[in-house]
Amino acid sequence: MQQLKDTHTLGERNRERLERIADVATRWIGSTASLAVHTLLFIVAFLLPLLHIVSFDKMLLVLTTIVSLEAIYLAIFIQMSVNKNSKDIEEIQEYVEEIQEDIEEIQEDVEEMQEDVEEIQEDVEEIQEDVEEIQEDVEELQEEMDDEPADDKLPSVTVQQPQPQNARDKIAQIQELIIRLQQEVELLKVDKS
Rank of each mutant, 00 (worst) to 15 (best):
R20G: 00
F42V: 13
A45D: 08
L48R: 06
L51W: 14
L177W: 10
Q161P: 00
Q100E: 10
I89E: 09
I78Q: 09
S156H: 08
L18Y: 01
E186K: 13
A75R: 13
L154V: 15
Q183I: 15
S86L: 15
G11M: 05
D151P: 00
Q114F: 06
V82H: 07
L154C: 05
A25W: 06
L60D: 00
S86G: 03
E16L: 08
A22P: 00
S34D: 05
V67S: 04
S55K: 11
H38C: 09
N166C: 03
N83V: 14
Q161N: 00
E148A: 14
S156C: 04
M145W: 10
T9F: 13
L41V: 09
I29V: 10
K170A: 04
W28Q: 04
I89R: 10
V124K: 02
H38R: 14
M1Y: 13
V44W: 14
Y73M: 12
D6T: 11
I134F: 02
L188T: 08
I89D: 07
D152F: 06
V131H: 01
H8P: 01
L187E: 10
R27E: 02
D123Q: 06
Q163M: 03
S68V: 14
E133W: 00
L177Y: 15
V110Y: 08
K189C: 00
D6V: 14
H52T: 07
E12V: 14
F46S: 06
Q173D: 12
L177M: 12
I72Q: 08
A71G: 05
R180S: 09
K58F: 15
E144P: 00
E148F: 05
T64W: 01
E70A: 14
A45L: 05
F46C: 04
V67M: 02
V117T: 09
Q100H: 06
L40V: 13
I92L: 07
E101A: 02
Q121G: 02
M1H: 07
E136S: 07
T7F: 09
Q121N: 06
L63P: 01
Q161D: 01
Q175C: 04
Q135N: 05
T39A: 10
D88A: 11
E118I: 11
E94R: 13
L47A: 15
V67R: 01
S156F: 07
Q173C: 08
E12R: 15
E104H: 11
V54Q: 05
K153C: 01
E91T: 13
P162T: 10
K153W: 06
Q182T: 15
H8N: 03
Q128V: 08
Q107C: 00
E118N: 06
I72D: 01
V157E: 01
L69R: 05
K58Y: 12
L141P: 01
D123K: 03
E90T: 15
R13V: 13
E139I: 09
A25E: 00
A33I: 13
